[in-house]
Design a protein around this nucleic acid. Structure first.
Length: 809
RNA sequence: GCCGAGGUGGCGGAAUGGCAGACGCAGCGGGCUUAAAACCCGCCGCCAGUAAAAUGGCGUGUGGGUUCGAAUCCCACCCUCGGUACCA
């Protein structure tokens, strides 16, 4: 028999699978249920590195496993092809972004082939093609007509390196998530999607089988908080300052009110006539957003010339401007309660403002504070509410505020509307016209797609490069005459918000997708990808699903039924250079083969944990696959068939299958492989002895191969065909197990004294408790340890342990 | 600060109330070989003990607790990673 030649085998089978269209998925197969296995599609950056392998090959193994379980599995792949890197490459190397993107795609697709994944490439999609982005545009127009897309002049995050605007989510620590630049706020007209309309529904994730961690992150991001909006009237004015608070129970403790520097009332009341106020506001606007939002920074502010009135007490309260108050949250103004809010406490101390305790932990009025007391307690100094628990106080005071029309209960969210427009070239053109009065006219469907024209100039200027294209910019409309086009393009998260639908319905040109096909496959049964998309892609896709539902395209509420996040593959302590790139899997594939690389990535540890990449240890996997190859391809010879070994081998086989079926289901590839290694070690011992029949041997080998096939699809397919099987191993069914066969006649029980292991004992399956305990007591070693002791209790847990609790006599 | 995950041999990790360290890497000893690689066999937590064994003690970040019994459950703390942060 030949030696294991991974290179030849992998080439051979990849070619055969392609030619026979083994992984092409029909929409339905009678008697099979559909299963949609989706990996988050990649950005075509140029090369697939080991991180991509870590994301995609275990996902493929899981999809293959579902196939063995008897599902009709669709496992598609495509390219998230719009985005900045293409444009940056264009600027840097003077390459056409389209060419750059498509070159990368063809290169990456070759690398994808090397992985041996079971992709149905007939469903491939590339988001930068007009056939795809046309539907972005159609959806956009429909959303506009429903009031879900709107244009607003607003303060937006501006990335000075990428020269474009960013959504809230794309700003991390005051820096651009993409470029790393310090972002600044700019006032510009922008397009938004009204994701906030769906905030409440997005919070409902009870029916999602997602990691709790991701759900929690989304909940935090949406940031629901309920409280009361209460209005403070201003002395000698008809204006009111409305403030939002979650602690209406502390209303009697308000000793000042703080406005955000951007608060509109500052203008209305001409508060900046006061030169200190004017200077303060000017200074805070110059300050970078990172400095302003730094929590370590001292809270500062400036006193204005006006006072307002606490509607409940009638007290006169000074009004400040302070940059620790954010214009974009709540109502842009807060009531200052220094006794019960950390920030207000620091502010009050700095400006020597009174601190009035209204909630006290023990109910005493003269409770002394060294810092704010933010816990629950008893209302004091709160007029008619004194003596109440503040939780109750909160309810009662809120009721009073509503009755007296001082304000009303309010719910606010941290979530802001999704900023969708980008002043960049390589994206979906936003399908809108403007007439001479700057009135917005959506592009009619017959004029879609608005084709992204070829461009020559990509230098970021703050305006979309499309502005420079006169031919694109103006349109002679039969009804409206000469119209100017919108030149902004869409955020690429638009593309990934519905791509999973397109996979289910490929090749359709007259509509985004066919509903009958969508319903066959969606929602996605198993979505797999990195946790870095927890609050962006995954939230947008959920929002978009609900929008499409409300537009009548879909009937279901959520796009991804189950989600699994693989961990991050780090490459620390390693220099990445083009010549010697430790992240490039190609040399490993050359040396050990795809199957070894796949198995090694899955063997490293739990998939959701990730780890520091190192290839030490892959040789162990390679050696093992070689042993499996030799063991099965070299003829088995019966020698002395033993009933005992036959029984053990059947037990072992059943046990292994039971473990593997459960581990594979739960993405525990590492323990699956460990079980397979154990099984092959066991079989190789059997082979040396020749102690089971040929039939049993063959069945065991088949079992091993089928279990291994999702992880190592090539070697298993080759051995499978060497064994004479005509139909692909990837079209087989999982081996089964029988719980009855797992029961053993004799068990080994551990014997403990006071919880310390002292010896073990063989017992018969159905032996009575008393007899077992009695026998255990008689063991020599146990007797030795019990010398001078008295057994006060004997514990017997069937199938597990015996424990004697003993004391000195 | 807050939310979440985690801390186990030289390394990756296994065990989620009952044999700690499965499986593998590295290492050590031996076989095969003129030799090396490959391959095969054996050993491999720490300390004490022994000619070698036997054997005993200790041991899952730290300290306490629950339990006949804890890596696993509870409390407090320390550290690492991920997320988030003046959200009123």
């Amino acid at each position: 028999m030949n030696n294991y030649n991974h290179k030849q085998i992998e080439n051979k089978w990849q070619k055969i699978w392609k030619e026979s269209e083994l992984y092409k998925t029909p929409d339905t197969i009678p008697s099979k249920k559909n299963w949609y296995a989706l990996s988050m599609f990649p950005y075509p950056s140029g090369d697939l590195h080991i991180g991509h392998w870590f994301a995609f090959t275990p996902a493929d193994a899981h999809a293959r496993f579902k196939r063995l379980e008897g599902f009709n599995v669709m496992h598609p792949q495509g390219f998230d092809a719009f985005g900045l890197p293409a444009e940056n490459a264009a600027i840097k190397n003077n390459i056409n972004p389209k060419k750059w993107t498509f070159d990368n795609i063809s290169n990456m697709q070759k690398q994808f082939d090397m992985m041996g994944n079971s992709y149905d490439w007939s469903r491939k999609l590339i988001t930068c093609t007009p056939e795809y982005y046309k539907w972005n545009q159609k959806f956009f127009v429909e959303m506009y007509k429903k009031g879900l897309a709107y244009r607003k002049n607003g303060p937006v995050w501006w990335d000075p390196i990428d020269q474009t605007t960013l959504a809230n989510e794309q700003v991390v620590d005051g820096k651009s998530e993409r470029s790393g630049a310090d972002v600044v706020k700019k006032l510009m007209p922008q397009w938004y999607f009204k994701i906030t309309d769906y905030a409440e529904e997005l919070l409902d994730m009870d029916n999602l089988e997602w990691p709790e961690k991701i759900k929690q992150m989304q909940r935090n991001w949406i940031g629901k908080s309920s409280g009361v909006t209460i209005n403070f009237s201003i002395e000698n004015s008809n204006e009111k300052i409305s403030t939002f608070t979650t602690r209406i129970d502390t209303i009697y403790g308000v000793t000042f009110v703080v406005l955000a520097p951007e608060h509109p009332i500052i203008k209305t009341l001409s508060l900046s006539k006061n030169k200190y106020v004017k200077e303060y506001i000017a200074r805070s606007q110059k300050m970078s957003e990172i400095d302003r939002t730094s929590t370590i920074r001292e809270k500062t502010g400036v006193r204005t010339d006006v006072c307002c009135i606490n509607p409940l007490t009638g007290e006169k309260i000074p009004v400040f401007v302070g940059d620790y108050v954010l214009a974009s949250y709540g109502s842009g103004a807060v009531m200052g309660v220094p006794a019960h809010d950390e920030r207000d406490f620091l502010f009050a101390r700095k400006y020597d403002l009174p601190v009035k305790v209204v909630v006290s932990p023990d109910g005493s009025k003269n409770f002394q504070l060294s810092k704010a007391f933010t816990g629950n307690g008893i209302q004091v100094n709160s007029e008619e509410f004194n003596g109440l628990n503040n939780v109750e106080g909160k309810e009662k005071i809120a009721k009073l505020v509503e009755e007296k029309k001082f304000g009303k209960k309010t719910i606010t969210y941290h979530l802001r509307d999704w900023l969708i427009s980008r002043q960049r070239y390589w994206g979906t053109p936003i399908p809108m016209f403007y007439d001479e009065n700057n009135e917005i006219i959506p592009v009619e469907e017959k004029y879609l797609p608005v084709i992204l024209p070829e461009a020559k100039e990509f230098m970021p200027t703050g305006q979309s490069p499309l502005t420079l294209d006169e031919k694109f910019l103006y349109f002679d409309h039969p009804r409206y005459g000469k119209l100017r086009r919108e030149t902004d393009t869409m955020d690429t998260f638009m593309d990934s918000s519905w791509y999973h639908l397109k996979f289910a319905s490929p090749g359709i040109l007259d509509s985004p997708f066919k509903k009958e096909k969508i319903d066959l496959w969606n929602p996605v049964d198993q979505y797999m990808g990195g946790a870095e998309h927890a609050v962006m892609h995954l939230l947008y896709a959920r929002f978009f699903n609900k929008v499409l539902r409300d537009l009548g395209y879909l009937d279901f509420d959520e796009p991804y039924k189950r989600l699994f996040n693989q961990g991050v593959m780090l490459a620390r302590h390693m220099k990445i250079s083009k010549r010697n790139n430790p992240l490039n899997p190609q040399p490993l594939v050359e040396k050990y083969g795809t199957d070894s690389v796949r198995a090694y990535l899955m063997f490293l540890g739990p998939w959701d944990r990730g780890g520091d990449w190192s290839d030490s240890g892959i040789n162990g996997i390679y050696r093992w696959l070689n042993r499996v190859w030799d063991m099965i391809t070299v003829q088995y010879k019966e020698k002395n068939i033993s009933q005992e070994q036959t029984k053990i081998s059947i037990q072992t086989s059943n046990e292994i299958t039971k473990n593997i079926l459960s581990d594979m289901k739960n993405f525990k590839f590492n323990t699956t492989i460990a079980s397979l290694m154990e099984y092959s070690n066991f079989l190789s011992k059997i082979k040396k002895e020749g102690s089971i029949s040929n039939t049993n041997w063959n069945n065991s080998c088949k079992r091993l191969l089928i279990h291994l096939s999702p992880i190592c699809p090539h070697i298993t397919e080759e051995i499978w065909s060497i064994l004479g099987n005509k139909k692909s191993i990837h079209l087989q069914k999982n081996p089964t197990f029988d719980d009855k066969l797992l029961e053993k006649d004799n068990l080994t029980l551990m014997v403990q004294i006071n919880g310390k292991l002292r010896d073990q004992i063989q017992v018969e399956k159905n032996a009575p408790k008393e007899q077992i305990i009695d026998n255990a007591k008689k063991i020599k070693k146990i007797q030795q340890h019990l010398e001078g002791m008295k057994i006060i209790k004997s514990i017997y847990v069937p199938g597990r342990i015996i424990n004697f609790v003993a004391k000195p006599e």
